[in-house]
Design a protein around this nucleic acid. Structure first.
Lengths: 356, 356
DNA sequence: GCCGATCTGGCAATCGGTTGCCAATCGTTG
DNA sequence: CAACGATTGGCAACCGATTGCCAGATCGGC
């Protein structure tokens, strides 16, 4: 028994490979018990005598035993892994969402698989189908899929949506309506009468929700509002959006997201339009950078880390719920308005027009 | 055989659960072949007659068969999954890295597991050990582990480092030395004589490399340089760093990363220090925001998406290499200097002092 | 038409755990 | 001290794929 690793010894000449894994059987042999006892010592400790269990655990520890997740997943069907799909990994908006989700998942002992769908509905659906059996459930953040497709996927998978509502599918959403109203009131109080909304991706539910809320609030305040776009929700989309906004005659523009808004800011600077003196600009999602761009951006901020956390909680709830019980089917978290320097008094308004 | 799903039919009353998976055996039965033939139709197509194979594939397609990754992983030992560990998920620097890695991995049919180590060496090591058997290999980005610990982990795992060099472990690094020299020359040409380096995390290899390169370049140009810190590499670290920098008497400061640099910018604004008139500021990592903060930041930019891609390539090379061959053990990608408005002529220098 | 080489597909073992079932053991009680 | 229930641990089947080995079929050459 002293002679090990003869022949193609991994440590000797060739490249270093992974050493063979310590299995439950190795532990069982070393501890003088059956493999099932080792298994139970970990997965159903109450089924094993304390002394046996402690002994087994000590031996396992000493042998540096790590259970093989694939082997566990096979009989149980549970992989202890969650899938998180986002439309654009590089959008800072998703940073905190990802962090929130990742923390919550790993706190519960789950592993998170992240996938970038690159704003493509088909890539999104394909990814779900590919990962289907590799994960216990999915969080779809700002899904670009149609409601019908989501329902189809929900029939075969446990899934939770972020910033999207589809009947029968649980979701965590940041509700923009109140804060959009606040934003419109803020602009109205500064004397703006004509708003432009710079639209984002058509399949985006948030996009529709925002425009909806904006229209309603504008009507109440008797402001006119136009919808422009859609524009790609990136910095680069800002140039076309800015030009259209300026052409529209609006004195205040509200962009689908901060990325687009910052792009607009930049384009305005290029064109010599002063913000907020000539035109006011606001955006959704209080992303990294919104507070130090020039001028700092007025935004509707989402509690997005909490949304990510909540979505994972919902998903874990679905997974661990014993059949019969019903989990709450959605959580809604409120957004809030952050007024900064990119919104100001409407141009042409008499000084002292309305109070700030 | 027509009676299925009697009793607790999943579709009927209770909550919708996951439907039972279609297995290789279902396909085999439907196609009238053995399970092994189905398996081979996918994994070794040349071992199966074309007509049989096409038939099997058609049946599988029709039944919507998806192989169970856990079941594949068990005999083969390969999970087709890679682990990517980063110290701070919310640092925009890592986003392009993550995107590069994710794209490359999924192009090769691999799944990426992302984990945030929160700047903690112990969490990093623990994560590797936990995911050990769940992934085929790891990419450790900007690892905070000691060289010894990395070597230990490399004995049991296939791993590739990003922005870190440890003998015997392959790595992809962005090389700062040339661009640091360029940065120092740029500052010297503007009349700066006294530089301050605002240090980042002690365990960061890039931090050491940057300070090293800075010192060397400063000596060549006969500038004095001091190292301050370490500071937490976040925006919030900027306040203390800025105060120390101002106190140091340096006319130009170089921050460990852009996050810190932007924090310094902000603090300078608060304290009424004009940038670059009173003090010049530069940083590493040309992150999102560096070009639209105020003033836009002079940075040393890393081709970080390429670095992420290269690291995954190295890792995949290690995994698929047949024993005996040796892969190149590292790639180095050059950085480049991006001069923006946060660096300018040194204060007190006679006008026309040195040419810009 | 026979023989051997080549193809093709099936059988069964295997990967590393989990878990239902059963038998042995133990302590308790009357 | 016998009988009984509770506790404990082992046996073996199973999860869904992969793969070595073998047998039957097919084909070509002579």
């Amino acid at each position: 028994m002293t002679e090990v690793n003869t022949g193609t010894s991994p440590g000797s000449a060739g490249r270093r490979r992974r050493p063979p894994a310590v299995t439950i059987h190795d532990v069982a042999r070393a501890a003088g018990v059956a493999a099932s006892t080792v298994s139970r010592s970990f997965s159903r400790p109450e089924r094993v005598n304390v002394r046996t269990r402690e002994h087994v655990r000590a031996v396992a520890e000493q042998l540096n035993y790590r259970p093989n997740p694939a082997a566990r997943a096979l009989p149980s069907g549970r992989t202890e892994t969650l899938g998180l799909l986002v439309p654009d990994i590089t959008n800072p908006f998703f940073f905190d969402l990802i962090r929130g989700a990742e923390r919550q998942a790993s706190a519960a002992g789950y592993t998170l698989v992240l996938s970038d769908t690159e704003e493509s509905p088909s890539k999104e659906a394909r990814t779900v189908e590919q990962l289907q059996r590799a994960v216990d459930g999915f969080v779809l953040a700002s899904s670009r899929l149609s409601a019908g497709r989501i329902r189809e996927l929900a029939a075969d998978n446990i899934l939770v949506l972020i910033n999207r509502r589809v009947a029968g599918v649980p979701s965590a959403v940041a509700d923009n309506t109140d804060s959009t109203r606040q934003l419109v009131e803020h602009l109205a109080s500064l004397g703006h009468r004509r708003l432009a909304y710079l639209g984002g991706p058509r399949p985006s539910w948030s996009n529709a929700q925002r425009w909806e809320a904006l229209q309603t609030a504008a009507q109440e305040k008797e402001l006119t509002s136009v919808r422009l776009g859609p524009y790609p929700p990136f910095l680069a989309g800002g140039a076309a959006a800015a030009d259209a906004a300026i052409g529209s005659g609006a004195t205040a523009v509200i962009a689908f997201n901060s990325l687009l808004a910052i792009g607009v800011l930049r384009r305005c600077a290029e064109r010599g339009k002063r913000v907020p003196e000539d035109i006011s600009i606001a955006g959704y999602d209080d992303i990294f950078g919104a507070d130090f761009c020039s001028p700092p951006l007025t935004t509707v901020a989402s509690p997005i880390q909490d949304v990510g956390r909540a979505a994972v909680d919902l998903l874990l709830g679905q997974l661990t719920t014993h059949l019969g019980r019903r989990e709450p089917h959605g959580v809604t978290l409120p957004c809030y308005l952050r007024i900064r320097d990119s919104t100001g008094r409407a141009p042409g308004g008499e000084p002292g027009d309305r109070a700030v």
